[in-house]
């Protein structure tokens, strides 16, 4: 086994061999985060469930009942809950990922391991949380007697993959910025707060008209949220054009994040 040490030739000079060889570490990181979170099993799970359930209740009262935001074929609570579990995955993963590198600073300064695993494990941890929050969703299906489209089984992995790429792409970008500028961590919650309004989370895309609709479509999360809710409502009426646009923008976001991260990952130890 020979290790070659040299500066990166370009940000695309990513050592895939190295990533593959240390893949076990990625899962150890996820296992660590899950273990720590669910150490006190009750509180761990309760927290993952509590947040979307309470937010759904609040949203249903204010946006559903008072503001009467239309929710298509879905009862508003189900509409907002299915959006919120996706949103919580995105915002939770993004927050974890953007702080991850700085939090691992002491380790980065002392040991080499693929730096990419740090934000990646943060996003994977959020995937696990997402699956836990599917439990109340299923309960809601039963309560409202709604049968989701069978296509959901097929599309959920794709939608999750797209959402993960977006989370990771932005997370990589913010994590790198955070190493140089420590006030980024104050910016992320603000960014997430704005994000919930410029993404169709509490309202459907269909209530937006004219040019404003194009702004929303340029948001790569739009296609993911819309498709998920369509399928949850039991319809197979997927807007494939929208999914394709979102997929394309998702890939751009991810590539950009990866590029930005890869450009300085070798020197994180000098700055964290």
């Amino acid at each position: 086994m020979t290790t070659v040490i040299r500066p990166k030739r370009s940000p695309w000079d990513i050592n895939l061999h190295d990533l593959w060889r240390s893949r076990e570490l990625l899962f150890v990181f996820v296992w660590r985060d899950i273990k720590v979170r669910y150490r006190q099993t009750f509180l761990g799970i309760a927290w993952v469930l509590f947040q979307p359930v309470v937010t759904t209740a609040v949203f249903s009262i204010f946006f559903g009942k008072l503001a009467k935001i239309p929710s298509g074929d879905l009862p508003y609570p189900l509409f907002s809950f299915s959006s919120l579990i996706l949103w919580n995955f995105f915002s939770g993963g993004l927050t974890l990922a953007s702080n991850s590198v700085v939090l691992m600073g002491p380790v980065i300064k002392k040991i080499y391991f693929p730096r990419l695993f740090i934000p990646l494990s943060a996003v994977l941890t959020s995937v696990v949380d997402f699956f836990v929050s599917l439990i109340p969703l299923i309960l809601m299906f039963i309560y409202y007697r709604i049968i989701p489209s069978p296509l959901l089984i097929l599309f959920l992995p794709l939608l999750l993959f797209m959402l993960s790429l977006n989370t990771l792409g932005l997370g990589l970008f913010l994590a790198t910025l955070n190493v140089r500028y420590r006030d980024i961590r104050f910016l992320v919650p603000f960014f997430v707060q704005i994000g919930i309004f410029v993404t169709p989370v509490i309202y459907p895309l269909s209530i937006i008209y004219d040019y404003r609709k194009w702004f929303l479509i340029a948001n790569p999360l739009t296609g993911i949220f819309e498709t998920f809710r369509t399928l949850v409502a039991g319809s197979n009426n997927i807007d494939f054009g929208l999914v394709l646009i979102s997929l394309l923008i998702t890939l751009i976001v991810f590539t950009f994040g990866l590029f930005y991260f890869s450009r300085s990952e070798d020197n994180f130890a000098d700055y964290v």
Partner: peptide, 20 residues
């Protein structure tokens, strides 16, 4: 630090045969 790959060199090259 460079030999243990904690930080990258600005230029140059090193080869290490075996685990460090």
């Amino acid at each position: 630090k460079i030999l243990s790959r904690i930080t990258a060199p600005t230029s140059g090259r090193a080869e290490i045969s075996g685990r460090l």
